[in-house]
């Protein structure tokens, strides 16, 4: 059972195979709007969109530009618009699209480098502005020769864990209607990361005053369309993080947290 509209159709590629038409966006050299090239290819029940694209690249047109790496939804490289919606090509089975025609376009809201490859510079710049690392003056790993660790219980870890699963694939950024109209808006990924570090009990730095967060182009431009959470392939739910961050900034939620205790290991107990 392939789940495609052409389930009963006989394929010219042999028994067990079905064929779909891949419509792949090709950018023009002048930077203008590109066009779509169509390729008729065979698919199996387990064929992902990335498999299909690599088939096209191997047997039909080797010049197609695609970015991919892990093929298992861990690296976040193969984000693209598949049948009009941002998805990971490696995480999308062709059969689940229930269509005999699959269109692949570069993600919206990202500048196009070539064909399906987009530029992440601005996206990562927004991410960096959120100071995505633990800030705690108690710990200076560079000057501290002793091994030290924070004591954090599972309840405290659960407050930020889901947001730390972000693979920075950019699907949320592509789906967000606010990013579509405001270039200064940090986007769901960056704001969710701001909440991730704010909720971490090992972190003692406050990000609430950052211009990228608390300004007219910041957090308050999010009006909860929920599209970011809808397309997230890892269950990060950026919309949840953003709303909780708003609650914290407006002090509706408990803003103060107990900073995790730091345990120093002297190394004497070893061996």
């Amino acid at each position: 059972m392939l789940g495609t509209k052409e389930q009963g159709a006989k394929s010219k590629y042999g028994p067990g195979n079905h064929n779909v038409t891949m419509r792949i966006y090709r950018s023009s050299k002048e930077g203008n709007k590109g066009n779509f090239d169509s390729f008729d290819i065979p698919i199996q029940r387990w064929t992902t969109v990335l498999d299909a694209l690599l088939y096209v690249k191997a047997y039909k047109d080797s010049s197609i530009g695609i970015r991919y790496s892990c093929r298992m939804a861990s690296c976040g490289s193969c984000g693209m618009k598949i049948n009009g919606k941002p998805r990971l090509a490696c995480y999308t089975n062709v059969s689940e699209l229930e269509s005999s025609e699959i269109s692949c376009e570069p993600m919206s809201n990202f500048p196009v480098l070539r064909d399906l490859v987009t530029d992440f510079s601005q996206f990562l710049s927004h991410h960096r502005k959120m100071k995505p690392y633990l800030i705690n003056p108690e710990v200076d790993l560079c000057d501290n020769p002793e091994l030290s660790e924070f004591l954090q219980n599972p309840t405290d870890a659960d407050k930020f864990l889901q947001f730390s699963y972000c693979i920075k694939c950019g699907l949320c950024y592509s789906a967000c209607p606010t990013v579509a109209t405001d270039t200064k808006f940090p986007g769901p990924q960056a704001l969710a990361q701001a909440y991730r570090y704010s909720a971490d009990t090992r972190d003692a730095g406050s990000r609430y005053g950052l211009t990228a967060i608390d300004s007219r182009h910041g957090l308050w431009r999010c009006h909860f369309s929920g599209s970011c959470s809808k397309v997230c392939p890892k269950g990060v739910d950026p919309a949840l993080g953003i709303q909780l961050l708003k609650g914290n900034i407006m002090s509706f939620a408990k803003r103060r947290k107990k900073i995790a205790e730091l345990k120093q290991h002297t190394g004497k107990s070893a061996d």
Binding site: P106, S108, V112, L113, V179, T181, H223, S225, S227
Partner: peptide
Amino acid sequence: YRADESRNNREGLKGWLDPTGYGWERVSYW
């Protein structure tokens, strides 16, 4: 190709004027 030379690819107003494909929350936002 260089990103600064290529088209920006922002959806613009079209991005929020189309409420389809993302569930009830997007319809509500629209």
